[in-house]
Nucleic acid binder design. Structure first.
Length: 460
RNA sequence: GUCCCCAUCGUCUAGCCUGGCCCAGGACGACGGCCUUUCACGCCGUUAACACCGGUUCAAAUCCGGUUGGGGACGCCA
């Protein structure tokens, strides 16, 4: 088995493409086959090397590894030319001299008549030679039916009369998508073509091309689309669609990969899969046939699951750049890991964790006026003052701190929460935070005292 | 418009091929509760679906037909 992922470098690798790549990867690895990457860069105007880089980086980040070096379609012109000659020589293709204007006219009037636009075959039997500006068209069978048993959708068939004579080679000599894909998949020995649903209509054309080439026809599998919340094809307006945007937003690669796999594929009731487990369990027959809506909430859940499972040292090294970006000094591995431990279960993404850990690093805190007004009342400051002495020297253990809260609360006849909140605001600038004894330990007595004093001086 | 595909809780899905174990299971979310120094985490519980119509059958989410709805494709883009 040999599968491939064949993106065109005309944009970032997006969620849908990543899932297609993942399925190809899982399929081939499951069967012990090969998985290759082919960059379809025949559209010189829109292709950019930077996008190729992005695609490579994104696949690598997700843990989707291809075999061998990436293949660039633009460098296979010789093979394409050869195969085109073969088709021409066999009378399976012909030169077409119809002008762009004529083609546009045909399409326009067909649409006006509410018909399916298609080439009328004017040059089909003229035996025209190649000429400047001419294209090569496929002599598509006019009768019969093209059928294949889709690996995901099951039996699919098209009446050949629905298909017109597609352009194989453009006027500039470069092959069009359908022809290049067939020529490459054939010459590269691809056995299984797994791609997006939007290619279903190309498949009968491609099968006809294989037949004309007298080449073995690969198995096809069409993965359903990923939709946005409005059931429209997922696009930028639904939010982030590029894979690397998810890295920036603080998602773990295993979470995204797991989520993407479960979007369309399933294995019983199971939700959590490592890449190895997915490889072991994957099968195209358990990929659903219907489109799926991208659900960020579920991705978030998976991400927090994997964050909770990650070691503090891994999270610390992932978080460090986010702190350095804000100009904070590296407090050292040990402290960083302690900080991580206090925010690991409080953030769904690395970005959220960093945000919740921000107060540890700040030189001075900015108190929300509303919170300050509510908590730094004369009584609140009085409570705060009572913390000064006990916290002056060493940070108490969690147990001792809890006892301190109890004592303070009891002496005032209030709950522990009532005494903890002013201190929380003083130490973190927030009313929600990690546990106070952890914070006290990480900040150290000096900073704790300093922050309490700053809060005491705060004018409501 | 034409062609192709799809149709189970709000969402991802199991079950469908090989009808009965399904008055439909799991997960996310939402809601409620417990835990608790706050916020989370965790735990417990609740909510909610076989699109519709007809047929086959003793029996249909499961098989067949139709309807409706949704998506995709109709480029010298990929």
């Amino acid at each position: 088995m040999k599968t491939r992922f064949a993106p065109s470098p005309t944009g970032h690798l997006h969620i849908g493409g990543a899932r297609t790549a993942l399925f190809n990867f899982l399929l081939s690895r499951n069967a012990g086959g090969e998985f290759v990457l082919r960059i379809e860069d025949t559209d010189a105007a829109r292709s950019e090397a930077a996008y190729t880089e992005d695609i490579l980086r994104a696949l690598d980040w997700l843990g989707i590894v291809h075999d061998g070096e990436p293949v660039f379609q633009s460098r296979r012109a010789e093979i394409h030319r050869e195969l085109t000659e073969r088709m021409l020589a066999a009378g399976k293709a012909y030169h077409c001299h119809c002008s762009q204007e004529r083609i546009d006219e045909i399409r326009k009037s067909a649409l006006e008549r509410k018909e399916k636009p298609r080439y009328d075959g004017k040059c089909r039997n003229l035996g025209l030679p190649a000429a400047p500006g001419s294209v090569v068209r496929f002599k598509s069978p006019e009768t019969g039916e093209t059928f294949w048993n889709d690996l995901i959708k099951g039996p699919v068939s098209f009446a050949n009369e629905e298909l017109d004579d597609l352009v194989m080679v453009r006027a500039d000599g470069l092959p069009t998508y359908n022809w290049a894909a067939v020529a490459d998949d054939h010459s590269m020995g691809i056995t299984h073509v797994v791609r997006g649903d939007d290619h279903v209509n190309n498949t009968p054309r491609q099968i006809l091309l294989y037949e004309a080439l007298d080449a073995p026809i690969p198995a096809f599998g069409h993965v359903p689309m990923i939709l946005g919340g409005d059931k429209k094809r997922l696009s930028k307006r639904h939010g982030a669609t590029s894979v690397m945007a998810y890295e920036e937003a603080g998602y773990l690669p295993e979470a995204l990969a797991n989520y993407l796999a479960r979007l369309g594929w399933s294995s019983g009731d199971r939700e959590i899969f490592s890449m190895d487990e997915m490889i072991k369990l994957f099968s195209l027959s358990s990929v659903g046939k219907s489109a799926a809506i991208f659900d960020k909430d579920k991705l978030d859940w998976l991400n927090s699951h994997y964050i909770k499972e990650s070691s503090p040292s891994r999270l610390a090294s992932l978080l460090l750049p986010r702190f350095e970006e804000k100009g904070y000094a590296n407090p050292g591995e040990k402290v960083l890991e302690e900080i991580v431990l206090t925010v690991r279960e409080r953030g769904k993404t690395l970005a959220e964790m960093a945000r919740k850990a921000d107060f540890y690093f700040r030189k001075t805190l900015t108190l929300n006026p509303g919170d300050a007004k509510k908590l730094l009342t004369p009584e609140g400051k009085d409570i705060l003052r009572s913390f000064v002495e006990p916290l002056r020297n060493a940070a108490p253990s969690d147990e001792d701190f809890n006892r301190l809260l109890e004592t303070l609360a009891a002496s005032r006849g209030v709950g522990k929460g009532a005494v903890a909140q002013p201190l929380r605001l003083a130490l973190t600038g927030e009313t929600a935070s990690p546990g106070l004894s952890d914070i006290g330990r990480i900040l150290g007595p000096e900073v704790v005292t300093q922050r309490i004093n700053a809060a005491l001086e705060h004018e409501a």
